[in-house]
Design a protein around this nucleic acid. Structure first.
Length: 475
RNA sequence: GGCCCCUUCGUCUAGUGGUCCAGGACGUCUGGUUCUCAUCCAGAAAAUCGCGGGUUCGACUCCCGCAGGGGUCACCA
C-alpha cells in the first residue's frame, strides 16, 4: 500500500559511533527490504553545537559502510532541501497554523524566570512542567520570544514497533518550545514537520526519545497529522555495560574501524546482530541477507553491550571468506612500507599464507614484514625458546648447516621443501618442534609464521639461504 | 523525586504454558590436524531464566508486588 520511507536524521555535531550507525542501519534495511527509500536529513538547528565538517563526515561514514541513502543533502531528492537550516520557511508555515488555531503562544518569560520555575519544581521533587506556568495573556509572537506549543494533556496508548504496547498518563505532556528565540525550530517541532512533508513511514530512533513521544503525539493531533510508525531502539551499552555507548567514554568513530582494517560488511553484520537476530542460529549475514531477513519485531528490548571481541572474530571470519583477489584489493592500504617494491604476484602469495590468521588488516604489517625485509638477528628467539634454549650453539650450527646444504639443491616448491625437511627430521633425529622452530627463527626472525615449507617457498631460495647463513654467522 | 523502558551462561542471544534439569555464537579451557601462531575439527566448563508471591496438573514463558539498571523532566538532538 504505502511506500516504506525511512530516514536517518543526525545532527552534525560530530562523528558517528556504533550506536548511531545502528539506528541508521536498521532504517536502511527496512527501506531496502520494502523497496522503499532511505532518506538522510541533517538536523542542524542548533548552531552552537554544530561542528564544522561533520555533515560531510556523516555522509562519508554512511557511504563507507554501504548505507547509501536515496535522498539527502548532497544528492537532493523530491523533498529537498534535506538540511533543516534550509527549511525554515516550512516550519514558519506550520507554526503559523498552530498560532492561528490557538495551539501555540509566545513564551513571555526570561530564561532566568523559567530557570526559577525549574528550580522550584526541583526543590519540591516534582517534574518540571511549563504548562503549570502557562501565561494567561501571552503577547503576540514577534519572533523574538520562544514559541511554545499549547498542549492538550491526555493519556496515550500507542504501539511501538520494537517496544510493543506503550502507555503514559497526561502528566508527561507539556508546552514544549517549537521555535527558539533565534528563529530555529527545535528538534521536537522540526522533525515532525519534516517527517510529514517527506512522507516518512517509519521513525526509528534511540530510547532517549521515548519519554517525549506523548508530546509528539499531542503535536501530531494539533497539526492534524497521522503519526508514522514509531520504533524505539534500546541503547548500545559501552563495554562496562552500565551506560549507553558514548563518545565521551571513548566510543570510536566508525570510520576509525575502517581505517584499522575492519571490513564494512563485518561491521554492519556485527552492528545488526547487536540486539537483533533472525531467530535461527545463523551468526554471519551478508548485507543482502540482512535486507531480506531483518525485522523490527526481532529487535531486542534491552540494551546490548558492545563486545569488541565478537567484532574481531566476525571480521576475521569475513576476511577468510574473501577470495585472494578480493583480499588483495581490499587490504591494499595496509601493507608495511617495506612491501612498497614487492610485486603484486609476490604480495598475493604472502596473502595466501597470511589470510587465515588476519583478524583485521591492521595486523598485516606485523604478520608479513619478514616476507619483505631481512629482520635483524634476534637472539632472544632462541634463548627464550622452550626447547632450543637447551641446545649448545654448536649443535644448532650443525643442524642449520645440514638444512642449508639440503636446501641448496631444492627447487623451492613447497612440496619439495616439505620432503627435504622430513628427510632432515629423520637424518638428524630431531623433533619437528626443534628443527622447524630453528629454521623458522633463522629465516624469519619471528616467533610465529605460516607453515614452514610454504613460508620458505614464498621467500625463495636466495632469501632463505641468505638468512640461514646470517643466522649461522651469528651463532 | 515523578513518569517511562528494561532484566535468560562473563558477553550477544534462542525461547511466546509441557518437546528446556534451557539451545546457538563470542570468549575461556582441553584434545586433534607429523613445528610455532592462526585456521579448522572434536569436546568441556559456564545461566537455581533479577527476587518474592500468585494462576495452573504444569511457568523462563501469564498476573501482582519488589529490587536493580537505564532513560527523561533543555531556547540539545
Amino acid at each position: 500500500m504505502t511506500t516504506v520511507r525511512t530516514r536517518f536524521a543526525p545532527s552534525p555535531t560530530g562523528y558517528l559511533h556504533v550506536g548511531g550507525i545502528r539506528t541508521a542501519l536498521f532504517a536502511f534495511l527496512l527501506a531496502r527490504q520494502a523497496n522503499g527509500q532511505f532518506v538522510l536529513r541533517l538536523e542542524d538547528t542548533d548552531k552552537k553545537r554544530e561542528v564544522a565538517g561533520s555533515d560531510q563526515h556523516l555522509m562519508d561514514s554512511l557511504k563507507a559502510l554501504g548505507l547509501q541513502y536515496d535522498e539527502g543533502p548532497d544528492i537532493g531528492g523530491p523533498f529537498a532541501p534535506y538540511r533543516q537550516s534550509e527549511r525554515l520557511d516550512h516550519y514558519q508555515g506550520w507554526a503559523k497554523k498552530l498560532i492561528d488555531s490557538g495551539r501555540a503562544y509566545a513564551d513571555p518569560y526570561t530564561s532566568a524566570e523559567v530557570e526559577a520555575f525549574r528550580e522550584q519544581a526541583k526543590a519540591t521533587k516534582k517534574p518540571f512542567l511549563f504548562r503549570n506556568h502557562r501565561p494567561e495573556n501571552p503577547p503576540a509572537w514577534d519572533g523574538s520570544q520562544p514559541l511554545r506549543f499549547k498542549s492538550d494533556p491526555k493519556a496515550y496508548d500507542w504501539q511501538d514497533a520494537v517496544m510493543g504496547k506503550l502507555h503514559t498518563g497526561p502528566e508527561v505532556v507539556d508546552d514544549f518550545i517549537l521555535v527558539k528565540s533565534d528563529g530555529y525550530p527545535t528538534y521536537n517541532f522540526a522533525h515532525i514537520v519534516d517527517d510529514a512533508e517527506m512522507e516518512i513511514s517509519h521513525i526509528i530512533r534511540g530510547q532517549e526519545f521515548l519519554a517525549s513521544i506523548p508530546n509528539y503525539l499531542n503535536l501530531y493531533e494539533a497539526l492534524e497529522l497521522t503519526p508514522p510508525i514509531m520504533a524505539t531502539m534500546p541503547h548500545v551499552l559501552g563495554p562496562s555495560g552500565n551506560k549507553k555507548l558514548s563518545k565521551r567514554d571513548g566510543a570510536k568513530d566508525v570510520l576509525d574501524y575502517l581505517r584499522e582494517g575492519y571490513l564494512p560488511e563485518a561491521l554492519v553484520n556485527f552492528i545488526a546482530t547487536l540486539g537483533w537476530n533472525d531467530a535461527t542460529e545463523q551468526e554471519i549475514f551478508t548485507i543482502p541477507e540482512l535486507i531480506e531477513k531483518f525485522s523490527l519485531e526481532h529487535v531486542g528490548r534491552g540494551g546490548a553491550r558492545f563486545d569488541e571481541q565478537r567484532l574481531l572474530w566476525m571480521n576475521g571470519s569475513f576476511i577468510r571468506n574473501l577470495s585472494l583477489d578480493e583480499l588483495f584489493e581490499r587490504c591494499a592500504q595496509f601493507w608495511p612500507p617495506e612491501a612498497a617494491d614487492a610485486s603484486d604476484d609476490y604480495k598475493k602469495q604472502v596473502l595466501g599464507l597470511v589470510q587465515e590468521r588476519l583478524k583485521y588488516f591492521g595486523e598485516l604489517p606485523e604478520l608479513s614484514r619478514f616476507f619483505f625485509i631481512d629482520l635483524p638477528i634476534n637472539a632472544d628467539l632462541i634463548s627464550s625458546h622452550k626447547q632450543l634454549k637447551k641446545y649448545e650453539p654448536q649443535q644448532l650450527k650443525l643442524l642449520l648447516e645440514k638444512v642449508a646444504n639440503s636446501l641448496e639443491s631444492s627447487d623451492f616448491t613447497a612440496s619439495d621443501l616439505q620432503e627435504r625437511l622430513n628427510v632432515l627430521l629423520e637424518e638428524t633425529g630431531e623433533k619437528p618442534a626443534v628443527l622447524f622452530s630453528l629454521v623458522r627463527i633463522a629465516t624469519t626472525q619471528a616467533p610465529a609464521s605460516p607453515s614452514l615449507a610454504e613460508t620458505l617457498s614464498v621467500l625463495g631460495k636466495v632469501v632463505s639461504l641468505r638468512r640461514l647463513q646470517a643466522q649461522l654467522a651469528a651463532l
